[in-house]
């Protein structure tokens, strides 16, 4: 089963191209999981203990508001990554993440991954850069969305 997980991990954009050894280390912390539509992968305030690599389906990053219910901030599709709060103390989720439909994702145990990254600087280094790359892309897209390009006709 671990071999299958390693294959899945090696085809996900976050870690694709890493050496078999490094993939193997990550695979040791990972399981493949599915969620049904509406189920929460992540709940705000709870312990941030997992990195999710989305394989299929769409995950909605949400925040709950008193009157309007959940507001979707962003959706993450196949090839995307969900969950960063496990990287830094206090390791608590800031948002909810809900399966918008059936979702398949690799769940990587965060404590296990942190330990391995500490023990193997090459894994730590590569993982950090890969994660930073995805964060940068998400930050850039968020910045463009802040422009409200299609919104007010006075903004372009």
């Amino acid at each position: 089963m671990k071999q299958d997980i390693a294959d899945l991990i090696s085809t996900h954009p976050l870690l694709a191209g890493l050496s078999v050894d490094l993939i193997g280390e990550v695979a040791g912390c990972a399981v493949n999981r599915v969620w049904h539509a509406g189920e929460l992968l992540i709940t705000e305030g709870e312990a941030a203990d997992t990195l999710y690599l989305v394989r299929r389906g769409v995950v909605a990053i949400e925040v709950n508001a008193p009157a309007s219910g959940p507001i979707v901030i962003e959706t993450v599709g196949p090839g995307g990554v969900v969950g960063w709060s496990w990287m830094f103390p206090p390791y608590r989720w800031h948002f909810d993440a809900r399966a918008a439909g059936a979702v398949g994702a690799i769940a990587i145990d965060a404590a296990c991954l942190r330990d391995k990254a500490d023990a193997d600087p090459e894994l730590g280094h590569r993982l950090t850069f890969r994660v930073a790359g995805v964060l940068l892309e998400r930050l850039q897209m968020t910045r463009v969305r802040l422009l409200d390009l299609y919104g007010s006709s006075r903004a372009r």
Partner: peptide, 17 residues
């Protein structure tokens, strides 16, 4: 860019698609 009640599709920039 902005999800509204009842919207079940993608939320995000076109580049994410």
């Amino acid at each position: 860019d902005v999800s509204t009640p009842g919207w079940t599709g993608h939320v995000g920039l076109v580049t994410a698609q």
